[in-house]
Simulated assay, not measured.
Amino acid sequence: MFRDEDLALLARPLYAFLTVAPRGGRWPAPRPVWFEVADDRTLRMFSVPDAPKLERLRAQPRASVVVAAPVGEPEQWVAVEGSVTLHDDGAADLAVRLAVRYWDMDNLDPMQRQLLEDYRTGGMVRIVLHPEKVNRFTV
């Protein structure tokens, strides 16, 4: 489903913009999240356990993610849609692994140190997006 150029973009430490079904009467509101592509080609993210998006994902277990190259690079983006599963296991390990991907671990500020500790101990939830459709654009 993914092309090599998709995987190259998704392997970079870029934000994914996760969109879930909105609450009644509201518009969809994408949220930036850290992510990784797993060996099975699912996209894995994590969340604090009381995040409103988890309630909405339990009610409608579908989501989309968009990842785009930064400004100044040739335009490229990948959009992934699919079903979602939520897991109580593996989220802390994922959060720490992604922190290494997104942060300079040798130069963490106090807020990042506290967040990392919260990720390790906060009962995080692992979000797995199972791709069913991939759209893309590359200049």
Rank of each mutant, 00 (worst) to 15 (best):
F2A: 14
D6R: 01
D6H: 07
D6S: 07
L9D: 06
P13E: 09
P13N: 13
A16M: 03
F17V: 06
T19E: 02
A21R: 07
P22I: 09
R26E: 14
W27H: 08
W27P: 00
P28C: 07
A29K: 09
P30V: 06
R31K: 15
R31V: 15
P32I: 02
V33N: 07
W34V: 01
F35P: 06
F35R: 05
F35D: 00
E36V: 12
A38D: 15
A38Y: 07
L43I: 11
L43P: 04
R44T: 02
R44A: 11
M45H: 02
M45S: 02
F46S: 07
S47M: 12
S47V: 04
V48H: 14
V48P: 08
P49V: 02
P49Y: 00
P49W: 04
D50Y: 00
K53S: 01
E55F: 00
R56Y: 04
R58F: 00
P61A: 11
P61F: 01
P61H: 08
P61S: 07
A63H: 03
A69D: 15
P70N: 07
V71S: 13
G72C: 09
P74G: 09
P74M: 10
E75K: 15
V80I: 06
E81W: 12
G82A: 02
G82D: 05
G82H: 07
G82K: 07
L86E: 00
D89H: 11
A92S: 14
D93I: 11
L94N: 11
V96G: 04
V96P: 13
R97H: 11
R97Y: 05
L98K: 08
N107A: 10
N107V: 00
L108S: 03
D109L: 07
M111N: 08
M111E: 11
Q112V: 08
L115H: 11
L116C: 09
L116H: 13
E117T: 14
Y119R: 09
Y119D: 06
R120T: 13
R120S: 13
G123P: 15
M124P: 09
R126P: 03
I127C: 10
L129H: 12
L129C: 05
H130S: 05
H130F: 03
P131A: 02
P131C: 13
E132D: 09
E132T: 10
R136D: 15
F137L: 10
V139M: 08
V139Q: 14
